[in-house]
Amino acid sequence: MGKEVLNLLKLEAALDLRQRAAWGGMLLYVVSAVYVCHLAMKDALAGTAWNALFWIILLFAAFNALARSFQREDQGRQLYLYTMVHPRSVVLARALYNALTMAVLSLLSLLFYALFLGDEPLSRADLLQFVLAVVLGGIGFAAVLTLISAIAARAGNGIGLMAILGFPVILPMLLAVMRASQLALQGAPWSDAGLLFLALAALDVVTITLAWLLFPYLWRD
């Protein structure tokens, strides 16, 4: 199982390397979104609004990035994949790969966001906490959206359906990370934020476990 997952992870990475445009697309999406916000908001952002806007951008970036997770392969290749490996390995590898992707993408988003919309709110923040919240949030989005993306792809109805299915289930995650990052921005002590981070990590684990449990029912036709 572990080896299967590792091989599948390598396959994902190889596929992504082959289609470098996809990564470029994801990044460009974030940069454009950030720049639009920069043009619209100028410097009128206080801490809370700065935080909220960042998460909204990241949320949409996650939907955009993960929509292709199960949509890029055709039926034939899917069938081939599932005869070779256990479906649970497939979903675990996808979830882990997506988590990695989102962790990197959210850090890059933070970089661009701070560049264009100002890093003034970060000056009073516990930076380690904020980065941890961003990474955990990115992983959480990936955990939730992996299975949602698989369902939407199976239903044969692209990103529109994914947004409808994804928004309500991602809301708990979104509210929790927004709260965690807000606490980090206020420079809250670890004793306050620790429990929230633990809850976030637990939520990530539960979500991936659910995807792992449910996926075998999904791939069969």
Binding site: V144, L147, I148, R154, L161, L203
Partner: peptide
């Protein structure tokens, strides 16, 4: 909405069931 967008009955039943279980647990948390 998910149910409405799938026409094949067996597939609709399974997709809807998966979403229901997934969403119910997350909602409960």
């Amino acid at each position: 909405v998910l149910r409405g967008s799938v026409t094949d009955r067996a597939k609709r039943a399974r997709l809807a069931a998966i979403y229901n279980v997934f969403a119910y647990v997350l909602m409960l948390l």
